[in-house]
Amino acid sequence: MDDFYDFVASILKVPVSELSSDTSYGSIPEWTSIMHLRLVMEIEDKYGVEIPLEQIATIRKLYDFESLIKGSEPQ
């Protein structure tokens, strides 16, 4: 998961130092509604997870993505 923030920063095109688990949809100008959908698809591809339709709309923070990725990792 260490590279999660680097990965997200490369998609959003912001310095990784500006991101934290609290960074949320709309809290930075780069995270627009279209970027939200892109992030969902990029994270799905990279981490091999499938984010259910109803969660795509409710995800707000990077923390939410992180838990989704962790939830799918084998224990």
């Binding site: 279209i34 959908l37 969902v40 591809d45 339709l53």
Partner: peptide, 16 residues
């Protein structure tokens, strides 16, 4: 095609 982003945001195409 990715039907989820179609219904969410009128994007027909998958990321790929």
């Amino acid at each position: 095609y990715d039907p989820r982003v179609w219904y969410l945001g009128s994007i027909p195409y998958s990321l790929r």
